[in-house]
Structures are given as structure tokens and as C-alpha cells.
Design a protein around this nucleic acid. Structure first.
Lengths: 187, 187
DNA sequence: ACCTGAACACCGTTCAAGT
DNA sequence: ACCTGAACACCGTTCAAGT
């Protein structure tokens, strides 16, 4: 990449992060280009689709989250590891509003620039789920994509102004449906 | 309303139902007007906002669903009544994709044409929830809007191509987190 | 190799003119 | 009272022309 192109690329990402933080994952691409003071065609050259832009913004965090599911913390049980990771995952999808729906769409579309990252995330969660299932602390009839769906559902709840205040509580509700050990406590 | 206006109004609703069934709640309004063979300004005259159009399409079903929560079936327990109503509610929000997000937005916006209907629905659910809580078959720390949020979350899951096949299963998972009597069965 | 203005086909919204 | 075409300000996408 030429020096001036690299400069544009980096600057576009910085500006895109701001705009998407403000307006969500469906922010106007033209608006991003305007604020970055480049032609909107230049943005499309660097990021041919909206998904490609989001992929550039999310990839690092997505990889970290995926990696985190692979690290085995010997101190905690698989059930606790799953719970902690779920919390991180739901927190992550909350960085930009609307991103969770985009990720769910990407999961079903192999051509999406976000597909691979999302699939890796799904597999990482599946691994933690299986460990907890073997331990007997997670529902035995649940699959990897169910976990992704529930993370998505909680992300959607957090995206809704009406429900955001109760997002943490609803996390506990759904978590208690996934994990079986601790669910009896409050009942 | 003048006769010709009424004709347009009805025809627009019929066409809107088709188009929104195909394309979801965010379908192009211009497209609906085109297919109805009226000016798009005419559509806007009858339905000043997208929410107003959806309100006209949904009102009857929404009222039925709200009323259903008020009917006490003496045969079934409050817990079973809640479960049955939840199933109906999740089924309802699936009529048009994207409608559940619009409803969640409307719940937070008193100016939305859909606000009143959604608020009524929330209250209807709250009533069923309280009865089940008194009976001891629903989580005692849950509120009416939590129920709406979980209906919304399940609606969102049904809107995603990737998760739709597992929607019924995930309904059971979340239902088991709301109701407490039956949750122990599979564990 | 990279950037850009202009053009295209859309969208929802508003306005002034028709019957 | 109701409907409409035209205009407006947006959007994402494509193309041909510039350096």
C-alpha cells in the first residue's frame, strides 16, 4: 500500500470508529468519508462493503474474545469459565449498536467479510459449552450456535433503549437457563 | 373519509401487507405505493409514518393478543396461562420480520403511533406474570418489561436466518428461565 | 497505484398545483 | 377533500477522468 493510501486507510478507521460509536453499525458511509475529508469512493476502495469496514474495526477484539475461550484457567471450573466468557461476549457486542444483528447475518452468509470471524467466535463458544456440559454444569441439549443466538439476543436487548436498564438482570436470567448448577439458588 | 380515499386506504393496506410480508417491516414505502398504483404522497397522507402503517396492519392482532391475556381460563394454572400467552406473543411478532425491533423502539417513544398498543401489550403480559408469581411458578424478581424484552429477544432470534431453525428450542430454554416449576424436568 | 467528481438509481419528505 | 408531479436532500454504487 502506498504511503498516502495507508494514511487514508488509518484515518478512515479512526473516523469510522467515532461515527459508528455515535450512530451505530448502520451509520452513513458517506458521512464517515465526509468527516474524514476524503471522497466517499475512497472509503469504498478501502472497504468495499460495510461489513469489511466493521471487520477492520472489530477484528482485533473478536480475535481476543475467540482466543480467550481457548485459554484454560485452571482455577475456575468450566461452568464459571463459560459464564465469564458469556459476560465478555455480551459486553463485546455492545461496543456498537446494531453490530450484533450484523454479526448474526454474517454468520449465515459465507460471503460476508465478517463471516470467518463470527464463525470462529461461534466455535470458541461451543468449545467452552462442551466442557461445561461434560462437567454437568451446562444444559446438555444446547449447541454452539444456540450460545451465539443467546449472546445475540442479549445484545439486541442492550441495543434497545427500553430494555437497556434491565440488560444485566436479563443476562442473569438467561445465564441461569444455560448453566444448571447455580440456577436453583434464587428459587 | 371520501369514497375514493377509503378505496385507496384499503388497497394500500392490502398491498402493504404483501410487500411487508416479503421484505419485512422496513420495506420501501415508495415500493408499496408503486405496487398499489398510487402516488407515494398518497400513502404518506394516509399513513404519515412507517409506524402508523404498521399500526394499521398490526392493531387488530395486537388487541387480540392483549385481550387474550385478560381472559382467565379456569382450566389452566397461571403458570400455564403465562407460558401459552408467551408462545402466542412470540408467534405474533414473527408475522413480519423486523417488527419486533420497531415495537421495542415504539415502547420507548411515546410519540410513536405504535406506542399505545405496545404499552398495552406490556401491561397485559405483566398481569399474567404477576398471577404466575403469586402462584409461585414464575421468577419472583421479574418485571413486566422484562417479559416484553424476552419476547423481543426471541423475536429477534426468529428474524435471524442463522437462528430461526433453533427458535422453538430457544423458546423452551428462555421459558424455563421464566417459569420455575417445570424447569427441573430435563436437568 | 491511488484519488476524485459526476452520474445513476434509489430513498423519505415537502410543496405547490391540480381536480 | 383528496391526489399528484416535481423538487429536495439524502443514500450506496459505478464509471470515466485525473495525478
Amino acid at each position: 500500500m502506498r504511503a498516502d493510501a495507508k494514511e487514508n486507510y488509518i484515518h478512515l478507521l479512526v473516523v469510522a470508529r467515532d461515527v459508528i460509536t455515535e450512530q451505530g453499525a448502520n451509520a452513513s458511509l458517506r458521512d464517515i468519508a465526509r468527516r474524514a475529508e476524503v471522497s466517499h469512493v475512497t472509503l469504498l476502495r478501502h472497504f468495499p462493503t460495510r461489513e469489511a469496514l466493521l471487520d477492520a474495526l472489530l477484528r482485533k477484539s473478536l480475535e481476543e474474545l475467540t482466543a480467550k475461550a481457548g485459554e484454560t484457567e485452571p482455577s475456575s471450573s468450566p461452568g464459571e469459565a463459560l459464564l465469564g466468557w458469556l459476560r465478555d461476549a455480551v459486553g463485546f457486542v455492545q461496543v456498537y449498536s446494531g453490530v450484533v444483528t450484523m454479526m448474526a447475518t454474517a454468520l449465515a452468509d459465507p460471503d460476508s467479510a465478517l463471516h470467518a470471524s463470527c464463525n470462529n467466535l461461534r466455535n470458541a463458544g461451543e468449545r467452552l459449552l462442551k466442557l461445561a456440559q461434560e462437567e454437568g454444569t451446562a444444559r446438555s441439549d444446547m449447541e454452539g450456535s444456540d450460545l451465539f443466538a443467546l449472546i445475540g439476543a442479549l445484545g439486541w436487548i442492550g441495543d434497545q433503549q427500553s430494555f437497556k436498564p434491565r440488560a444485566e438482570y436479563l443476562f442473569d436470567v438467561i445465564a441461569s437457563a444455560i448453566l444448571v448448577g447455580r440456577s436453583g439458588e434464587f428459587r
